[in-house]
C-alpha cells in the first residue's frame, strides 16, 4: 500500500501508483455501489459543501458515502447559510471540520480547495474549484477507460471545447501518465491552450490536432465528447454551425474500431444523438455510474487509512 494523500486537490498530486491503488479498490467496491450492503464507513460523517450548483457530483458523493454505511451532512444553499452573512471559507472549513470526518468542497474560486486543505483538520476533497481542478471527474474518466477498454497505449480523441473545458485539461495530463496517443478535435477558436499542448509533448506522447471529427474515427479507441457552450461564441449562427459539426450520430459510426468506447461527462445537449445510446460503443451512463465506486474508493482511502482493505 502506497497511497499517501491526505487530501484530494489536483490530479498533479497523484502518482500512477496512487491511481492504480484507487482503481483496484474501486473495482472491489463496484458491488457495493450496486447495492450490496457494506458498513465500511459506518459512523463516519461526510460534509458536502457546494458553493456552486451541482447535481451529479453532489449526488454521487452522497450515494458513495451512504452505500459505504456512512452518512452525510449538507451545507445546503449558500444563500441560506452563514456564507451569506460574509463568513470566510477558511472559517467555514474550520467549523465544519469540527462536525464531520471529511469535507467535499465545490467553490467558484480557483485554489479554494488547496486553501481549505491548509485550514482543515479533516481530509478535503476538491469537487471543482472555479475553472481549476476537478480530480474526481478525471479519476472516474480514467477508470471508465480502464474498465471498458484499457489504459496503456490507448488512442483517445478529446472532442469539443478544449479551450475552456477543465475536464479535458486534467484528463489529458492524466492520460499522458499512461503513454496515450491523444487526438485533439475542436473548432479553431476552442483549441487546447498552447501551454497544455507543450506540457503534453514534453511528456513524450503523440498529440495530433484536427478540427474534423471524421478524421479520427478509424484511429481511436476512445471518443471523449464534451459540450460546446453557446456563450463562447459572439454570433448564434456561428455557434449553431460549430455545434452541428460536432454532433455524433449512429450513422457516423460505421468504420470505427470494434473496441471503440464513447464517453461524455454529461449532461449532454445535443453532442451525442440518442440513436448512439443503443450502439455497442456508448459508455456515458456507465461512466457516470463509475463515479460512485471511484469516489467510494477515495473516501475509504482518506477516512480509514491504509490498512483497512
Amino acid at each position: 500500500m502506497s497511497f499517501s494523500l491526505r487530501h484530494v486537490i489536483s490530479m498533479k498530486d497523484f502518482t500512477r501508483e496512487d491511481i492504480d491503488e484507487i482503481f483496484e479498490l474501486a473495482e472491489r467496491l463496484e458491488r457495493v455501489a450496486s447495492g450490496v450492503p457494506c458498513r465500511l464507513l459506518e459512523d463516519k460523517l461526510l460534509a458536502l459543501l457546494f458553493y456552486e450548483p451541482s447535481t451529479r457530483t453532489r449526488l454521487s458523493f452522497d450515494a458513495a458515502m451512504k452505500r459505504l454505511g456512512g452518512a452525510s451532512i449538507d451545507l445546503g444553499s449558500v444563500e441560506a447559510s452563514s456564507v451569506a452573512k460574509g463568513e470566510t471559507l477558511a472559517d467555514t472549513i474550520r467549523v465544519v471540520g469540527g462536525y464531520a470526518d471529511a469535507i467535499v468542497l465545490r467553490h467558484p474560486s480557483e485554489g479554494a480547495a488547496r486553501m481549505a486543505s491548509e485550514y482543515s483538520r479533516v481530509p478535503v476533497v476538491n469537487a471543482g474549484d472555479g475553472v481549476g481542478h476537478h480530480p474526481t471527474q478525471t479519476l472516474l474518466d480514467l477508470y471508465t477507460i480502464k474498465r471498458e477498454n484499457r489504459l496503456d497505449g490507448i488512442s483517445v480523441a478529446l472532442v469539443g471545447d478544449l479551450r475552456y473545458g477543465r475536464t479535458v485539461h486534467s484528463l489529458a495530463y492524466a492520460l499522458a501518465l499512461y503513454g496515450a496517443r491523444i487526438y485533439l478535435v475542436s473548432p479553431p477558436q476552442l483549441r487546447m491552450p498552447e501551454h497544455i499542448k507543450s506540457d503534453l509533448l514534453e511528456s513524450n506522447i503523440v498529440v495530433e490536432e484536427t478540427s474534423r471529427l471524421e478524421d479520427v474515427f478509424e484511429s481511436v479507441n476512445v471518443l471523449y465528447m464534451t459540450r460546446i457552450q453557446r456563450e463562447r461564441f459572439a454570433e448564434p449562427s456561428e455557434y449553431l454551425a460549430v455545434a452541428g459539426s460536432y454532433r455524433l450520430t449512429s450513422e457516423m459510426l460505421s468504420g470505427v474500431r470494434d473496441d471503440l468506447i464513447i464517453m461524455h461527462p454529461l449532461p449532454r445537449v445535443g453532442e451525442i444523438d440518442s440513436s448512439v445510446d443503443e450502439t455497442p460503443y456508448a459508455r456515458y451512463f456507465k461512466q457516470s455510474f463509475y463515479g460512485v465506486p471511484v469516489r467510494m474508493a477515495l473516501l475509504v482511502k482518506l477516512l480509514e487509512g491504509r490498512d483497512l482493505v
Binding site: T88, L89, A90, S109, E110, G111, A112, G130
Partner: peptide, 13 residues
C-alpha cells in the same frame, strides 16, 4: 494576477 484566485477574495490566506 488571476482575479478569481482564492488569494484575491478576502480570505485570510
Amino acid at each position: 494576477r488571476n482575479p478569481n484566485c482564492i488569494t484575491n477574495t478576502g480570505e485570510p490566506v
